[in-house]
Structures are given as structure tokens and as C-alpha cells.
Amino acid sequence: MSLLSEIEECGEVIGKDTIDSFLACMQCGKCTGSCPSGRVTSYRTRRVINRLQAGDRSVLADPNLWMCTTCYTCYERCPREVRITDIIRAVRNLAAKEGYMSKSHRATASYVIKTGHAVPINDETKKLRKELGLSEVPPTTHKFPKALESIRKIIKKTNFDKLVGFDWDTMSLEERGEK
């Protein structure tokens, strides 16, 4: 399968047209020049698009791929209307599938599997909630265990648990070397 069709598959929910828009990139550099990340890291937005056009798979292993904050500045300004930020999300999906997912990202994902929240509540906040006249625990998956079960069902259905390497027996992340 070509790199393009693999990315199209990962980005199915955002649409083929969105993904394919990178074919029209003219390498003008508007994206990199507008990128707040490119000013402080070695990430170059245009280079990512360039490598995708060339079918260069090594882009998947490049840690720079993860330096984008999804701020959409490039996406808004691209004169060829390349849907850059969405494409980056889809390419990251493929990278994650190939095992390029950092430990910290797996941890963030595991919180949602465990609690339904990427940032779960803590005692300090519970106390503050009470002081503010709010319910001690918010009316979310924190309060409704059944809702959490629904989230977990979805996660199993999409194999998100396997993607992240989540062990249901220990309710924690499997040991996995970081690629």
C-alpha cells in the first residue's frame, strides 16, 4: 500500500479530500514561516508535506512530527489550501499504529481508559469544588461508572486499548520500548 493510501485510511473520518490536499503543495514555505513551533524546534511543516509527497516513510519515525501543537495557523494561511493540521493528525495516527507513540502520550491515553478523563480529579480540586458550591465530584464519568463502561466499550471496539498497549488485568500500560 502506498503511503498516501495508508494515510487516507487513517484519516477516513476527516475525509479523503482533506488528506489528498497535500498533493497540491507548492513548497512555498508559508506554513513553516507561520509556525510557532518551527521558531523553537527543528520541526519544519513544509518538510513534512514534502516528504509525504515523496512517499518518504521515514517521516513516521521523526520525533519532529509531534512538535505541532495543532494551532491551525498554517492550515488557515496555506495558499494552496492544504489541510495541513488535519493531515498531520492523520499521519500521526499512522505513526502511532507503527508504534511511534511516546510513553507520556500512552499515559495520557491510559487515564481516559481508567477514568474517562485525560486529566482526572484529585483531592485538592474536590475540596475546592466544595468551597465553590459545586458538587464535590463533577457529573461526568467520575460520578457515573456506567458512563465509564460505555467509554471503555468504544475503546475496545476501535482497538484503542491495543494501540496504546493497555493491560486490562493490571489496569496499567504494558511495558513497551519507546520507538
Binding site: 514561516g33 509556525c35 518551527g38 519544519r44 513544509r46
Partner: peptide
């Protein structure tokens, strides 16, 4: 002016 020098890949 902010720009990328696309030949050098420099912002």
C-alpha cells in the same frame, strides 16, 4: 518579516 528559507529549511 517571518519566512522560511525553503532551500535551507530555516525559519
Amino acid at each position: 518579516l517571518r519566512a522560511e528559507d525553503t532551500l535551507l529549511s530555516n525559519a
